[in-house]
């Protein structure tokens, strides 16, 4: 399979990339890891006039924890970098749990977290993680930078709110106030498959009391589903069986799955319920053990 013809630029500076996008008037597309875009070019689902390859831009491969504890993931930070970052497990357990489950090991060497969030695949993993953790995209365009919460950034299936002349330069995950807890569970038919259903939970707790709870679902709707409403059942108290059950029911109700080759709608809803229960029960067990 061959993509249709396109022009190609590989700028060495961010300003240059933004200028190329501006000149492209919406006909130019950013190429990051290429693990979603190149398959689409080959199938000719996408046929941009110009590709602006950002792989040669300096200073975008970072995976850094700022002094305030927030995590910045640069546009060229590959999935595999996140998978190998053992230090993330403490402060960002949801990210650490998701990283090894994205695609397969070879795809993870090229694909990026930022690209995945930009791609906004309803079955992608990172957007769910980012929404559960209250992360934001930092976008840069001709008139400067702006910060967009991922929950507002994803505007639909394969759609985001970036203007054609903006580059997502990084995604920022805020530091947890108190102790971070949470997890990510994904059901896949085989390695490298997209989620049949996936659940991301991000919690902050002070002792055994949950002070913030975010939750998002993947694979069970036309876009990533922000289920933080259902997670509110957890805030302000301990992770009791009753609260866990309410959050799991809320999440299952928030899911909008469709029956397809990966499973029936009822099955996927059931998976969501089970995964929420599992993640939260594990956290509750950890809290109890630590006490």
């Amino acid at each position: 399979m061959y993509p249709s013809r396109f022009g190609y630029e590989s700028p060495r500076a961010l300003d240059e990339a933004i200028e190329l996008l501006t000149r492209g008037q919406g006909e130019a597309k950013i190429l990051a890891g290429g693990q979603s875009l190149i398959p689409m070019l080959k199938l000719r689902f996408a046929s941009p006039e110009m590709l602006v390859d950002i792989n040669n831009l300096p200073g975008l491969s970072h995976l850094t924890v700022d002094p305030d504890g927030s995590l910045r993931v640069g546009a060229l930070c590959r999935h595999s970098q996140l998978e190998r970052a053992a230090a993330l497990a403490g402060p960002f357990p949801t990210i650490a749990a998701a990283a090894p489950l994205v695609a397969d090991p070879i795809v993870r060497n090229r694909g990026t977290l930022v690209g995945s969030i930009c791609h906004a695949d309803p079955q992608g993993d990172w957007a769910a993680v980012a929404i559960a953790l209250g992360a934001s995209v930092v976008a840069q365009g001709p008139s400067g930078r702006r910060r967009i919460p991922v929950a507002d950034f994803v505007s639909g299936p394969f759609q985001n709110v970036l203007a054609y002349d903006e580059v997502a330069v990084e995604v920022v995950f805020p530091a947890a106030a108190g102790t971070a807890a949470g997890g990510y569970l994904k059901l896949e038919r085989r390695v490298g498959d997209f989620a049949t259903a996936g659940v991301a939970v991000g919690l902050e707790r002070s002792g055994s009391v949950v002070t913030r709870a975010g939750m998002a679902l993947t694979g069970v709707g036309g876009a990533t589903i922000d289920a933080s409403g259902a997670a509110q059942a957890l805030v302000g108290g301990e992770l009791t069986a009753d609260r866990i059950a309410r959050a799991a029911e809320g999440a299952a109700a928030a899911a909008k799955p469709r029956s397809d080759h990966r499973g029936s709608a009822a099955y996927k809803r059931h998976i969501v319920h089970t995964f929420v229960t599992r993640i939260l029960t594990r956290v509750a067990d950890d809290v109890e053990r630590a006490a």
Partner: peptide, 8 residues
């Protein structure tokens, strides 16, 4: 390792 069919 990279998939050479998924890179230009």
């Amino acid at each position: 390792p990279v998939k050479s069919c998924t890179m230009l």
